[in-house]
Each structure stands twice: as structure tokens, then as C-alpha cells.
Simulated assay, not measured.
Amino acid sequence: MNWHIKKFDELTNVELYKLLGARSEVFIVEQTCPYQDIDGKDFSAFHLYAESNGEIAAYVRILPQGISYNEASIGRVLVSQNFRKQALGKAVMQKAIEYMKVEMQEKNIRISAQEYLLKFYQDLGFKQVSAMYLEDDIPHIEMLWSYE
């Protein structure tokens, strides 16, 4: 498993194609949720992903403060179907949090989490900070991670 973190302009065309393909497969096809994945935020993002034998295994998009929220945020969290049940979701989130804490000097991270993943994110130190709301017809909650 090879881990990478790159700014948008550091990604090759092939890497970008694979990342967008993985996002489309999980969020649009698997979840049968037609939504606009290409939202302009990728230009400002750090793209953290694991690759194995040329396939995207896990991915998150890290956004600096002021892009989605006042706080920095993590989104588009995914583990590709062929790589599930290997704790890669936890691994990619831990790597994202560590990067944001050390390299970006972030003390707060806000996410919009699918509600069924509440415990997963709580186990990573996130706390629920909103009531349930629908985003693309999927129940979500806002969660906040803080480091003092």
C-alpha cells in the first residue's frame, strides 16, 4: 500500500482520473446518489490517498479553513469496495488528522458525516455538533474534532 498526499496541481492527469473515478463509484454509483461531485473545492484541497497495484484503495479530501467551513475540514472519505474490511477507513482518517494537526497546525476539524457512521467518527475523537439534516437525501450530522 502506497500513501500519497498531494495538492491539486501536483496530481498527474492519471492520478486525478483515478481519484475522481473512485469518488464517482462510491458516492454516485454505490450510494445511488446523483450529485455534483466536481464542486470547485478540489483546487484548494490536499488529496490524501492509498494506492495498491494501481487502484485507489482509500481517499479523503482535506480542505483548509474557509472553504467549506470556518474550520478546516475532511470530506469525500472513501474506501473502495475491493479494499473494505481492512481498517483503511480508520487509517486514512488518522493520517488526515495527523497531517492537519502537524503540517497545517489545525486545532479544529469539522466534517459533515453520514449519520450511520456516527460511532466510527466518535471513535476518532469527533463530537456531534448538529442535529441530523439531509444532504443529497442522505441523513448527515456535523461533527467537530478539537485538539488543545
Results as ranks from 00 to 15, higher is better:
2 N>A: 05
4 H>N: 10
4 H>L: 05
5 I>D: 12
5 I>V: 15
6 K>Q: 08
6 K>T: 04
6 K>Y: 05
6 K>A: 05
8 F>E: 06
8 F>D: 09
11 L>K: 01
12 T>F: 05
13 N>I: 09
13 N>K: 00
15 E>M: 10
16 L>R: 01
16 L>F: 13
17 Y>N: 11
18 K>W: 00
20 L>Q: 14
23 R>M: 05
24 S>T: 13
24 S>I: 12
24 S>C: 10
25 E>F: 06
29 V>R: 12
29 V>C: 04
30 E>W: 07
30 E>I: 02
31 Q>F: 08
35 Y>H: 15
38 I>A: 12
38 I>H: 06
40 G>H: 08
41 K>F: 04
42 D>F: 01
44 S>D: 13
46 F>K: 10
46 F>D: 10
48 L>E: 09
48 L>N: 08
49 Y>P: 01
49 Y>L: 04
49 Y>H: 09
52 S>K: 13
52 S>F: 05
54 G>P: 09
55 E>L: 14
56 I>L: 06
56 I>V: 15
57 A>V: 11
58 A>D: 12
59 Y>F: 13
60 V>Q: 09
60 V>H: 09
61 R>T: 09
62 I>H: 09
62 I>A: 05
64 P>D: 05
64 P>G: 07
65 Q>L: 03
67 I>T: 15
69 Y>Q: 09
70 N>Q: 15
70 N>F: 13
72 A>W: 07
72 A>H: 12
73 S>H: 11
74 I>W: 03
75 G>T: 14
77 V>L: 13
78 L>R: 04
80 S>M: 05
83 F>G: 06
84 R>N: 03
85 K>F: 02
88 L>K: 00
89 G>D: 08
90 K>H: 04
91 A>F: 00
92 V>R: 03
92 V>S: 02
92 V>M: 03
93 M>E: 01
94 Q>V: 02
96 A>R: 12
96 A>H: 11
96 A>E: 11
98 E>S: 14
98 E>N: 15
99 Y>F: 15
109 I>G: 10
109 I>A: 11
110 R>K: 14
111 I>A: 06
113 A>F: 02
114 Q>D: 06
116 Y>C: 03
117 L>P: 01
118 L>N: 12
120 F>M: 11
120 F>W: 13
121 Y>P: 04
126 F>P: 03
127 K>E: 12
129 V>E: 10
129 V>P: 01
129 V>R: 01
129 V>Y: 01
131 A>L: 03
131 A>P: 00
131 A>I: 00
133 Y>H: 14
134 L>D: 03
135 E>Q: 14
136 D>W: 04
136 D>T: 02
137 D>N: 15
137 D>I: 00
140 H>R: 15
140 H>S: 14
141 I>C: 11
144 L>P: 09
144 L>A: 07
146 S>Q: 15
146 S>W: 03
